[in-house]
Amino acid sequence: MMVSDNSALFWIFGVFTVLLAICGFYCILVTRNFIRTLIGLELLTKAVTLLVVLAGYVSGRTAISQSLAITIIVVEVVVIAVAAGIVFGIFKQIGSLNVTKMRNLKG
């Protein structure tokens, strides 16, 4: 088994995954644009996908990890497509993509 050799590789890629997740969280927290919020979500999902593939590589179970990664990608695409439809619907209602201008639900 190549576990000890892969320990360093796992942590290097792990750091990259953490940085990608930080970028996604920061993007979601800071932006006021609906589309950029979706892009932040997408970055977070990419971090998760990479972590799954990395875990599969390190543990020697690449087939299972690939299968899981493909499931994650399919779910991600459907979520983004529906969310893009919702964003378009909101734009038709309020005429803007700015999150702060969406006050219809304010109680």
Binding site: F13, L54, A84
Partner: peptide, 26 residues
Amino acid sequence: LMFRLDAPIAAVFELSVCAGLITVIF
């Protein structure tokens, strides 16, 4: 990175779906 991590099928999926389809959606 996925190619590097021995996951070629997931990598191709990522390239075609995420880099292609999602960009088109956006």
